[in-house]
Computed example of a mutant assay.
Amino acid sequence: MRINYNLDALRALIELHRAQSFVQAARQLHITQPALTRRLQLLEEAVGGRLVDRTTRSVAFTTLGEWLVGRVAEQVAGLDQHLLAASRMARGETGSVQFACLTTVAYAIAPEVIARFHHRYPQVRVTVLDDTGQRVIESVGSGRAEFGVGLWSDELHGMEADVIGEDPFVLAMSPEHALARRRRIRWQELASEKVVALRPTSANRRQIDAVLDAHGIAPPWFDEVEHLSSLLGWLHAGHGIGVIPRLAMRTAEARSLRCVPLVEPDIHRRIALLKRRGATLGGPTQGLWDLFRQALAQRAT
């Protein structure tokens, strides 16, 4: 059996018990005395018994009324506190945001974005799930991340993607390498070079291979590594040349390297903000989304 009751009626009962006065209780609730009486009547009708004996001089709670107040006062107070906390979270006064992000973006752009976010929301904690493009998609899709800064692809099922800009692939190498003085390099010119590549498990590698294949160009890969950080370490040590996203040149490992644009064809990855289809982002989370959108639009081509 379900009882239909009004939460305001419960609050009226609790406040009357505290004030022991219809006048004071109505004033505290910012309602009229007839409105207070009506709320109590509705609650009595819902439970099927009298809760308060009304007299001209005093307020007398029945045994049932005392029992009910004793059982619900603490719960209603707790509910009010939870609603207040939810309101503070919605306004960005407290709470947390968890989002997924490409490692290169997390390194190159996220620090300034998070700094601006904390200036606006100083009490909201941030957790970054920085990983590969595929794992960013998985984190958003599974709900681990409220949104993601990732790559647009045809595999974004059940998601909304806001494509911000393009991050071109460039050829990176030590400043002493002969190709470092070039203004641009055609992909076909790499056929005679020993190019260090990410393994085929990388979304970047798969994208590049697909575009080169469509243009009838043989991939120039020689050595392979699993992670971009390893590739940058090899290049920093002077071992070969490598193809990396231009944003990766902002990392500490890449700052000593030179990069040259790769052309014919121009290949780039599309940076996008991702969220589950139909998902509503809360106030601070939407704020962080907007800050990333602004920063990416300024940095991407």
Results as ranks from 00 to 15, higher is better:
residue 61 F to M: 10
residue 61 F to L: 14
residue 61 F to A: 07
residue 61 F to I: 06
residue 62 T to S: 13
residue 62 T to P: 01
residue 64 L to P: 00
residue 66 E to P: 00
residue 66 E to D: 11
residue 66 E to A: 00
residue 66 E to T: 02
residue 66 E to W: 01
residue 66 E to R: 13
residue 67 W to C: 01
residue 67 W to K: 11
residue 68 L to P: 00
residue 68 L to Y: 04
residue 69 V to H: 05
residue 69 V to D: 09
residue 69 V to E: 11
residue 69 V to I: 14
residue 70 G to Q: 07
residue 70 G to R: 05
residue 70 G to E: 05
residue 71 R to W: 03
residue 71 R to L: 14
residue 71 R to N: 04
residue 72 V to G: 01
residue 72 V to H: 04
residue 72 V to P: 00
residue 73 A to N: 05
residue 74 E to D: 15
residue 74 E to R: 15
residue 75 Q to Y: 08
residue 75 Q to L: 10
residue 75 Q to P: 00
residue 76 V to E: 04
residue 77 A to S: 11
residue 77 A to M: 03
residue 77 A to C: 02
residue 78 G to V: 02
residue 78 G to Q: 13
residue 79 L to H: 13
residue 80 D to I: 02
residue 80 D to H: 09
residue 80 D to F: 03
residue 81 Q to A: 15
residue 81 Q to E: 15
residue 82 H to M: 12
residue 84 L to F: 11
residue 85 A to D: 15
residue 85 A to T: 14
residue 86 A to E: 15
residue 87 S to N: 13
residue 88 R to A: 10
residue 89 M to G: 06
residue 89 M to E: 15
residue 90 A to F: 09
residue 90 A to C: 07
residue 92 G to H: 09
residue 92 G to R: 10
residue 92 G to W: 10
residue 93 E to R: 12
residue 94 T to Y: 01
residue 94 T to M: 12
residue 97 V to W: 08
residue 97 V to G: 03
residue 98 Q to H: 06
residue 98 Q to K: 13
residue 99 F to T: 06
residue 99 F to W: 13
residue 99 F to A: 07
residue 100 A to M: 07
residue 101 C to A: 12
residue 101 C to L: 09
residue 102 L to P: 00
residue 103 T to W: 00
residue 103 T to L: 01
residue 104 T to S: 15
residue 105 V to S: 06
residue 106 A to Y: 06
residue 106 A to H: 11
residue 106 A to R: 12
residue 107 Y to Q: 14
residue 108 A to D: 08
residue 109 I to R: 12
residue 110 A to V: 09
residue 110 A to T: 15
residue 114 I to Q: 07
residue 116 R to G: 06
residue 117 F to I: 11
residue 118 H to C: 04
residue 118 H to T: 13
residue 118 H to F: 04
residue 119 H to V: 11
residue 119 H to Y: 07
residue 121 Y to V: 07
residue 122 P to S: 03
residue 123 Q to K: 14
residue 123 Q to L: 09
residue 124 V to N: 02
residue 124 V to H: 03
residue 125 R to I: 01
residue 126 V to S: 05
residue 127 T to N: 10
residue 127 T to Y: 04
residue 127 T to P: 01
residue 127 T to V: 12
residue 127 T to G: 02
residue 127 T to C: 04
residue 128 V to S: 03
residue 128 V to A: 04
residue 129 L to M: 08
residue 130 D to I: 05
residue 130 D to H: 14
residue 132 T to F: 01
residue 133 G to A: 10
residue 133 G to M: 10
residue 133 G to D: 09
residue 133 G to L: 11
residue 135 R to Y: 11
residue 135 R to D: 15
residue 135 R to W: 11
residue 136 V to S: 04
residue 137 I to W: 08
residue 137 I to P: 00
residue 138 E to M: 03
residue 138 E to R: 07
residue 138 E to T: 04
residue 139 S to H: 15
residue 140 V to A: 10
residue 140 V to E: 12
residue 141 G to C: 03
residue 141 G to M: 10
residue 141 G to R: 15
residue 142 S to F: 03
residue 142 S to H: 02
residue 143 G to M: 06
residue 143 G to R: 09
residue 143 G to Q: 09
residue 146 E to F: 02
residue 147 F to E: 12
residue 149 V to L: 14
residue 150 G to S: 08
residue 150 G to R: 05
residue 150 G to N: 08
residue 150 G to C: 08
residue 150 G to W: 11
residue 150 G to H: 04
residue 151 L to C: 06
residue 151 L to H: 06
residue 151 L to W: 13
residue 151 L to Y: 10
residue 152 W to T: 05
residue 153 S to N: 13
residue 153 S to Q: 07
residue 154 D to H: 10
residue 154 D to S: 12
residue 155 E to V: 03
